[in-house]
């Protein structure tokens, strides 16, 4: 079974995000990049599927950060078999429609049985790539998935709705999945192993073609002007604990 996992790095959201000079995008130079957390789950689910049903896992990405190799090496250390990078002049913040087109073309040439994308990445506004890749390839797509089991050319997927309700679907392969969570927490790859792999691993290069464009234009990017902001309590843990305890008491919520 041929499993392909497109992966993507996004800015570390716990960092301060700055808007660029013309106010239409982020100032990408100031940012640290991390792998999208749902891609960690997609990699895990792919490796689990391979362990259960056999096959190969290929991780692939459009390198918009110049740092993608590190993420590809980590995925190899976690059990992926092959890695590929789509090359071309695609700056940070390249729109989803362009990336989906590039990925779909590259993935088509890999003849996948299963494409596992992350359900979403919180870094762009023109939609999730998983369903776009599926549309380009004419494949079925199910997203918000927390478990994939493959058997006899079919996948059983569990899709989450609100409140823990899940829908079970049976899908004939090939298909594209938007992974929300793997059915076990993503495994950890020791740094030493990643380093070792970085020395020897070969990353295939696939030349990217033209940009598709998002079809919409950002006029203005800004930090939310919140309707309200919390009243901030200064001080250390002792003082803050004091304030919280007082409020709980005031509301009559202390037991005993």
């Amino acid at each position: 079974m041929n499993i392909v996992v497109p992966i993507k790095q996004i800015p570390n959201l716990t960092d301060e995000l700055e808007i660029n000079g013309d106010g239409t995008g982020l100032d990408h130079d100031a940012l640290q990049y991390v792998l999208n957390e749902f891609d960690e789950h997609a990699i895990e689910e792919a490796v689990l599927a391979k362990e259960a049903a056999g096959g190969t896992v290929t991780v692939i990405g459009v390198d918009t950060t110049g740092e993608l190799d590190g993420a590809l090496h980590t995925a190899l250390a976690k059990g992926a078999d092959k890695a590929a990078r789509i090359t071309g002049d695609f700056p940070r913040g390249t729109d989803s429609h362009t990336q989906a087109k590039l990925l779909a073309n590259a993935i088509r040439s890999l003849s996948p049985d299963l494409v596992l994308t992350g359900v979403q990445a919180a870094d762009d506004r023109d939609g999730q790539i998983g369903p776009m890749i599926a549309a380009h390839l004419g494949l079925p797509y199910v997203g918000v998935v927390t478990g994939v089991a493959v058997k006899d050319g079919k996948a059983i997927v569990h899709k989450e709705y609100a409140g823990g309700l899940m829908g079970e679907f049976e899908v004939s392969l090939p298909m594209v999945v938007g992974v929300q969570a793997a059915h076990q927490p993503p495994r950890y790859a020791p740094v030493s192993k990643v380093r070792q792999i970085a020395k020897t691993a070969k990353i295939d290069e696939i030349a990217g073609d033209e940009a598709a464009g998002a079809g919409s234009t950002v006029r203005r990017m800004f930090k939310p002007e919140a309707a309200g902001h919390a009243e901030m309590w200064e001080g250390g843990p002792e003082e803050v604990a004091e304030k919280i305890a007082a409020l709980i008491k005031e509301k009559g919520l202390l037991k005993g």
């Binding site: 429609h97 999730q128 918000v144």
Partner: peptide, 22 residues
């Protein structure tokens, strides 16, 4: 939503319309 997230981006491609999400 869980349902809409399966549809919007695919429709954007098949119908050839731009998508603004979130």
């Amino acid at each position: 939503t869980s349902m809409g997230m399966d549809l919007a981006a695919g429709l954007s491609v098949t119908a050839g319309l731009p998508l603004m999400a979130y």
